[in-house]
Write a protein that binds this DNA or RNA. Structure first.
Lengths: 328, 328
DNA sequence: ACCGGTACCGATACCGGTATCGAGATCAGT
DNA sequence: ACTGATCTCGATACCGGTATCGGTACCGGT
């Protein structure tokens, strides 16, 4: 048990000053090769582990990048985080994740907490933070990236796509395939709602609306999709298409349809959102908008990094990463 | 832009000493109600955000709990993290996640880095860390929990189940349902390998082995499952069961079978692992071992917390959370 | 009036690193 | 040999909080 080894111990073991030890371990300049080797060996010998806390404190800056997502239980976000991690790997910066559970209050608290660690940058989800959160963000001068949405005005940088337009585009694709009696099943979430209304607006342009819909609160799941779809299908006759707020829900419906022998996509077209890799196992069964979650995460991280490199001498960037429509 | 507000600024604004301000903000004792209100108001007024870095540094401890998982792209781990977050919420401790990509070297680096932040506790995945990593862990005196496996000797605490036994149990269930010509498709991963060999050992007890198998490296995916299953099924005739190292792979095969009209589970039994909620959309199609990821994460976090509360006066705990076998 | 106890406050000394700066040694050029 | 530049090193002063401890004010009891 090597308890509380400090730099001083390393320095003593190497027979140099604390300062030289510090420089040697950081490969800073003003140290001789001989001492670098001596100090590193000494550190290894006594099992020294640097104190990031003290170092960051002394430096007045950290290598932390705060990343805030609404949930972990929806594959989409872990994939985004994966992209962030990937882009940050080897950069010397480290992501720190926070989960809001779609709760504004919780998001505010998480951000306050993150900021109290003085992160070098911040990546968050969505553009529709409430006023108090926005004030928090505006009072800071670190690079910030908001992801997954571009319908609104970003605090700083932005990576994603227009949720409204995504819904709209899908509606137009569906309409041009001749579908007319359309149902909707979706989560009551900001971004899902934007897609819904985008979809709806395109339908309205053709003089139609949702034939029926089911909205729900809380986390979306395959089971929820199956349940609501069953309800919708058995209640409302003659639907020829159901738009789901994501692929998970659509997949639940797929299970139901396979069981009932409903012919997909001829009799009924299922439309999801996200383009989960999962769907590749069921080719042609579910139409979807394929979003590039990893790429969005990666891009967000890259923007933070470049912004950091240029020390804020850079204008806010907005990068659109269009979803790709995949019809059934 | 309120840059670099410090406690001294708050103290000045409130007309008290730095120390009183510190106490007021932390609701420490030895402060009058009047001053608490005055200080908090002042802090709000000038937009003060505490410096966790300095605070943690000053009292030589953090409220960080390091959590290390091999991947984010496999739903299982985000669910574990979700359980950890849940258990930690309101405890005053905060999880910090790290992803190893199933890479020992990377895991070592991540742990070194985490330890340099002096976390209060550590939660990691698996029991089979290499020697250098183990040394790192043994040289520390914070509570450690290893998750998701119990085949081996934990460094400290342990939450999970025997991977070997899980494979064995499933094999026995499959055998007793009369299956005989069994194939295996799986990832070359420590825990998957344990399940494979457990499964195999049970088969061996009945004088049979894998009729054929396909192993692969890298991340498992639905597509990989579909591809390998297609290969296995078309190459090897008369298989009556395929054991997959997880549900994702099995699901890929499900898609293939549905397409080819292979009658599940009569003609062919698919056996996965994890019990993803996803499978509920396809009842009776895939047998699986349902593991409680959230509960494992939650329990791991709870063990760390109680261990912290009792200040290390507690013996290492091992909690087994048995997977539940769900036949098709 | 005196005393001990309690509540509250602030000066001071750290925590473990790093930035800074001045000093000594070494070296090249004249 | 002298000058100036370069390299290497260590003493010192912080970074922004918190622990500690001594001091003051006020209280109730005798």
């Amino acid at each position: 048990m090597n308890k509380n080894k400090t730099l001083k111990d390393v320095a003593a073991a190497a027979g140099v000053s604390k300062m030289t030890a510090s420089r040697a371990l950081r490969r800073d300049k003003d140290v001789s090769e001989a001492n670098i080797e001596k100090v590193r060996q000494a550190a290894r010998d006594i099992g020294y582990i640097g104190n990031h806390l003290a170092a960051s404190f002394a430096n007045k800056r950290t290598d932390l990048i705060g990343v805030v997502v609404p949930a972990m239980t929806n594959v989409v976000f872990p994939q985004v985080l994966s992209g962030v991690s990937e882009a940050l790997a080897g950069s010397g910066f480290q992501p720190v994740f926070g989960v809001t559970d779609y709760d504004d209050e919780k998001e505010y608290e998480i951000l306050r907490n993150m900021l109290s660690w003085r992160p070098a940058g911040l990546i968050l989800t969505g553009l529709d933070q409430p006023a108090n959160t926005l004030k928090l963000l505006e009072n800071t001068d670190i690079p910030i990236v908001q992801m997954m949405d571009s319908d609104g005005s970003p605090v700083d940088n932005c990576v994603g796509f227009s949720q409204t337009l995504a819904g709209r585009d899908m509606a137009m694709a569906i309409l041009s395939s001749g579908r007319k009696r359309i149902g909707y099943i979706g989560k009551k979430d900001t971004r899902a709602a934007k897609r819904r209304s985008g979809f709806l607006s395109a339908l309205a342009d053709h003089g139609i609306g949702y034939h029926a819909e089911r909205l729900f609160d809380g986390p979306s799941s395959v089971e929820m999709g199956r349940r609501l779809a069953e309800d919708l299908i058995t209640t409302e006759r003659n639907l020829d298409c159901i738009y789901f707020s994501n692929d998970d829900l659509a997949l639940g419906c797929l299970g139901f349809c396979l069981e009932r022998g409903i012919d997909l996509p001829q009799t009924l077209t299922l439309v999801g959102f996200n383009g989960l890799e999962l769907l590749n196992a069921f080719p042609g069964k579910i139409a979807t908008s394929r979003t590039s979650r990893q790429e969005i995460g990666r891009t967000a991280a890259e923007i933070v990094l470049s912004s950091l490199e240029l020390r804020g001498q850079t204008d806010p960037k907005t990068v659109i990463i269009q979803p790709e429509i995949c019809l059934a």
